[in-house]
Amino acid sequence: MIWLLDLDNTLVGRDDAFALWAADAVARAGGSGDDLAAIVAADGGGFARKTDVARVIADRLGWEADLPAVVERFRAGILAHVRAYPGVPALLDGLRAEGDRVVVVTNGTSAQQRGKIARCALAPHVDAVVVSEEEGAAKPDPRLLEVALGRVGADGADRRDVWMVGDALHADVAAGRAAGVRTGWVSHGRDAGDGPAPDVVGRTVHDVVAAVRALAAPAGPAPARP
């Protein structure tokens, strides 16, 4: 089996890291809970335009409106606070020990995404890392998944044995469906709403992997006839 795993909010707590940094920045600036809520909302789970987030931060905290500098400040803050979710390295090691191949497939800049991987020491636990900025394509574009499969020599793999797992329906699940692979959604307890339907849903990446394993497990022996 081949696992194409999203990074942010799937393997590592990117939103948790942003919220921790923002809380510290607000406190240092003498801001309020409303300021913190506005900054976190503006971030949009990492999918908002970075300069738009920076503008809200600068306005709320009274910083100079040098938006590229503000972007660099909050990116550095995320790197300082980001952590892998509990048990993730062991999960990845377990998949590879069973002969599976594991690729991190992430949208973002090379410096930021590889910085998170280095900070969380994940590189030794996966077979490859594919970053959108380096490849000129970003999820939901299925080309990024094709690059990932090629990176581990699996271009011709049976797509039923390939799983794209991530927390973003509009990016991860949509990319997996466009690439013709199976999909798992890390829901964090959210409702899918009108997003593309994944094959498997779990609150955490551990739950998704367990659900996939359950699907792949051979059926037990038929009960004895009386």
Score class of each variant (00 low, 15 high):
42 A>F: 09
44 G>W: 08
76 A>K: 07
67 L>N: 01
20 L>D: 14
108 G>C: 04
8 D>N: 05
25 A>K: 10
167 D>F: 07
66 D>K: 05
148 A>Y: 00
29 A>F: 10
7 L>G: 00
93 D>G: 11
111 A>K: 09
111 A>F: 13
153 G>T: 01
200 V>A: 06
50 K>F: 07
87 G>A: 05
226 P>M: 04
122 L>G: 01
115 G>M: 07
102 V>E: 00
106 T>K: 08
92 L>V: 05
90 A>F: 15
103 V>Q: 03
215 L>G: 12
35 D>V: 05
47 F>K: 14
174 A>H: 02
80 A>P: 10
150 G>T: 03
135 E>K: 11
150 G>P: 02
205 V>R: 00
208 V>P: 00
125 H>K: 07
133 E>L: 12
176 G>V: 04
160 R>L: 15
72 E>N: 14
195 G>R: 06
110 S>F: 15
168 A>M: 15
146 E>K: 06
2 I>R: 00
32 S>K: 11
141 D>L: 11
192 A>H: 14
151 R>E: 12
218 P>Q: 04
127 D>Y: 02
41 A>F: 13
175 A>V: 01
191 D>S: 13
177 R>V: 12
96 R>T: 05
28 R>I: 08
165 V>W: 12
217 A>M: 10
140 P>F: 08
154 A>C: 09
26 V>D: 05
214 A>Q: 12
102 V>Q: 03
81 H>Y: 15
207 D>S: 07
53 V>I: 11
60 R>T: 08
148 A>L: 02
31 G>K: 08
103 V>H: 02
155 D>P: 13
107 N>Q: 09
185 W>I: 02
169 L>V: 10
203 R>D: 09
84 A>V: 03
84 A>Q: 05
39 I>W: 04
148 A>S: 03
150 G>F: 12
94 G>Q: 05
147 V>C: 03
120 C>G: 02
194 D>C: 10
153 G>M: 03
196 P>E: 02
136 G>N: 10
60 R>N: 06
89 P>T: 04
130 V>H: 10
44 G>R: 11
92 L>K: 07
13 G>T: 10
88 V>R: 04
81 H>K: 06
185 W>M: 03
196 P>V: 04
99 G>H: 02
139 K>W: 09
15 D>I: 12
38 A>I: 12
214 A>T: 13
8 D>V: 01
182 R>P: 08
157 A>V: 11
137 A>N: 12
63 W>E: 03
103 V>G: 02
112 Q>F: 15
98 E>H: 14
221 P>T: 09
99 G>V: 04
219 A>I: 15
217 A>D: 11
112 Q>D: 14
205 V>Q: 00
17 A>Q: 10
154 A>T: 05
104 V>P: 06
55 R>K: 12
169 L>Y: 09
66 D>A: 07
178 A>Q: 07
172 D>F: 04
